[in-house]
Design a protein around this nucleic acid. Sequence first.
DNA 1: ATGCCTCTGTCACAGAGA
Length: 279
Amino acid sequence: MALRIATWNVNSVRTRLDQVGAWLRAEAPEVLCLQETKVADELFPHAAFEALGYQAVISGQKAYNGVAILSRLPIEDVQVGFAALLPDDPGAEGLGEQKRVISASIEGVRVLNLYVPNGSALTSEKYPYKLEWLACLGRYLEAQEAEGEPLAMVGDFNIALESRDIHDPERLSGGIMASDPERQALTAALGDRLGDVFRVFEPESGHWSWWDYRTGAWDRDTGWRIDHIYLSEDLLACATGCVIHKRVRGNEQPSDHVPVVVHLAWPPEEAADGDDDGW
DNA sequence: ATGCCTCTGTCACAGAGA
């Protein structure tokens, strides 16, 4: 069986509804995680996705942020925010005001969809917020690991972890989305639990998931790779590919991000040693 | 380069994004 999990920061799900629909019809992944839906829950366009065979679970707010998981397969155990797994955490509750985290179990995989704060600038008060958020993510992942479920953590991370993830590392390293503190915070949160599946298949630079609207970045192909898919070891072993759907950035009125899709051979083949209780 | 473009909310811009 194939399980394809996609992530896409759509920069408004309502403005991009036709494009997302067209992409789902063409690609038909089992799961699509959206970020920056920018819509209150009561206005989310459920019907358009249901018509394409997708159920949506959502955590949105007016105008800003917002995440959703769309799935053709049954969705179980939906959690919103970090607080569900961190009931006594000093930071988790307050960080939940911005709708950036949703998770659910699909086909025995814990799918965690994140919209990591951008931070704006190193001098902004939003930058320490980003670092606090990443520290809380680390505590969340520690708690999630104790659950023992295979984990696929996807989303817009707003961080390029390495030089090869930026078109001009000499100029951009050290700035927002490429500073040492945020890179270290994400690396610490990952621990040895999770691996960036795109890098299993592609070691080279020049592969981007986001092109700035403002700088003519698409025309010059001056992008960043900030949309990531991190898998636990059991899922990494089942990954057969990871693809960035670059062409979508050339659409009319595009999002500034494009979809990233991981292909998994999942569930793994039953061991042929007679533990099949179906017989 | 304090910009560039795009989106939301609300109705001429302000604020946010990355």
